[in-house]
């Protein structure tokens, strides 16, 4: 099982890196999703997979029944999933906004000239002053 998960994690990582390297912004975001899941799978795997009792302390005991599973990797992975979800939502909104404003999702077309920054900020100031 460990070997299988390691291979799956590696494959997801490879696919994710390939996608991140594409020019299309949406594909890059999908790449982030894949890498994020690859890391979660690997984290799970590195926390050791064991067939064991649930880590619950029964009434009257002070320790869970040995051998018990390690709950920490699950808690950590859950945190990582939640954080990853939030960041991903932002990345998707940003991709959408960029498409709306710039009319493209091709990263090659996003080569701004520094001159534009000054021009835009000037325009923005004028707008605010009005």
């Amino acid at each position: 099982m460990e070997t299988l998960l390691a291979i799956i994690g590696g494959a997801l990582f490879a696919a994710g890196i390939y996608m991140v390297l594409r020019r299309n912004l949406i594909k890059a975001v999908i790449g982030i999703i894949l890498i994020s899941n690859a890391v979660n799978v690997l984290f799970f795997n590195l926390g050791r997979l064991t067939k064991a009792n649930p880590p619950l302390i029964w009434e009257g005991n002070t320790l869970p029944v040995s051998p018990f599973a390690n709950p920490l990797p699950q808690a950590l992975v859950l945190t990582a999933i939640v954080i990853g979800f939030g960041l991903l939502a932002f990345a998707l909104v940003l991709a959408y906004r960029s498409y709306k404003e710039l009319g493209t999702v091709d990263l090659d077309d996003m080569k701004m000239d520094p001159v534009e920054v000054s021009a835009e900020m000037r325009a923005e100031e004028e707008q605010v002053n009005q």
Binding site: A95, S98, L102, L107, M110, K111, M112, E116, V117, E120
Partner: peptide, 8 residues
């Protein structure tokens, strides 16, 4: 526009 490009 430039901000979005930088942010991406």
């Amino acid at each position: 526009k430039t901000q979005l490009q930088g942010a991406v």
